[in-house]
């Protein structure tokens, strides 16, 4: 049971890290960026290729993986969001354009085989691979019944540190105040001299970098990297997390992430492995029905 709780915290960390980026974009743009799970996957896949195919040390692979993810954030903004924002398209339009980009990214990795156009990006096609042992030092400790693998355990402080940093930036720095201003009232922000487009680009860069990093940590710790890890692990769970916490709330996403980790592990222990996903979505559904603003969100009202 202790091991399970540890697992809950560990998987919750990854959910939270992923969801923080997800919710950041929603909080500022009121848009669901459905390419976020593709960025998660891309971060992991690219890092893997850099390490295994191109023989780079892990830390270089990880840094480049995060940088590439951030770059995709800019692509999302400039290709999928800004043209639609310019003509004040309904939010469903951004939903579709980001789905389109996700499709492109997943398909590119999926077709990455030796000899294909994307062999530089990925060579294992639709297969699932893992970093070879020893990519990073991975000492393992046993304490009582607990097994502690460094690669998993370390994810917890790394995620928490990053989320604390993001929380600090959002809360106490001028840039954070600016981002919150854009989220709350873009008009007022512009009148105060903020370049709103640039702030939105920055939002997507931060969000996508975190998403990519979440993917890298996931791949490292779970030994499962494939074109589908985003879709299968975080696409919809990410939604559950940000709904539980309250759409747009960063602390909400963090708490939501750990809460979902816990709910899933409880479901696993109580109802067996298959129920895990179903229980999470039942929770999502109930939260929306009972308290659509989530744990930390605020209710909106339309003016007549």
């Amino acid at each position: 049971m202790d091991q399970q709780i540890l697992n809950a915290i560990f998987i919750g960390s990854i959910y939270a890290l992923f969801a923080v980026g997800y919710t950041l974009v929603f909080g500022i743009l009121d848009i669901l960026n459905l390419a976020h799970s593709a960025v998660f996957m891309l971060g992991a896949a690219l890092t893997y290729s850099l390490v295994v195919t191109h023989g780079q040390p892990f830390w270089i692979g990880a840094v480049l993986g995060v940088a590439a993810s951030a770059l995709i954030g800019l692509v999302i903004e400039h290709v999928c969001l800004r043209p639609l924002r310019r003509r004040q398209a309904p939010p469903i339009a951004a939903l579709i354009s980001t789905i389109g980009l996700a499709l492109v990214i997943v398909a590119a990795v999926e077709q990455g085989k030796s000899g294909s156009l994307f062999s530089w990006l990925w060579v294992d096609g639709a297969n699932s691979v893992a970093f070879p042992p020893g990519t990073v030092p991975n000492p393992t400790w046993h304490i009582g019944d607990l097994t502690l693998e460094a690669s998993k355990v370390l994810i917890i402080p790394i995620s928490i540190a990053l989320m604390l940093i993001l929380g600090y930036v959002m809360r106490f720095t001028q840039v954070g105040r600016g981002l919150r201003a854009v989220a709350e009232n873009p008009r007022a922000a512009r009148l105060m001299g903020l370049d709103v487009d640039r702030m939105i680009s920055l939002t997507l860069v931060i969000s996508s970098a975190l998403g990519g990093l979440a993917g890298i940590l996931f791949g490292l710790a779970l030994g499962d990297i494939s074109p589908y890890i985003g879709r299968d692990n975080v696409e919809v769970r990410g939604l559950a997390v940000i709904v539980l916490g309250g759409m747009g709330s960063i602390p909400g996403a963090v708490i939501g992430g750990y809460l979902l980790g816990l709910i899933e592990i409880l479901a696993l222990v109580t109802f067996g492995s298959n129920a895990r996903g179903g229980v999470a979505f039942a929770a999502l559904f109930l939260m929306l029905v009972l308290r659509p603003q989530g744990l930390f969100g605020t209710r909106l009202r339309e003016r007549i």
Binding site: G278, A280, F281, A282, F285
Partner: peptide
């Protein structure tokens, strides 16, 4: 929000 709630419904039905 409706989209997400209905996703919750289909996933709960599918997985659960």
């Amino acid at each position: 929000f409706l989209a997400i709630a209905t996703i919750g419904f289909i996933e709960a039905l599918h997985l659960g």
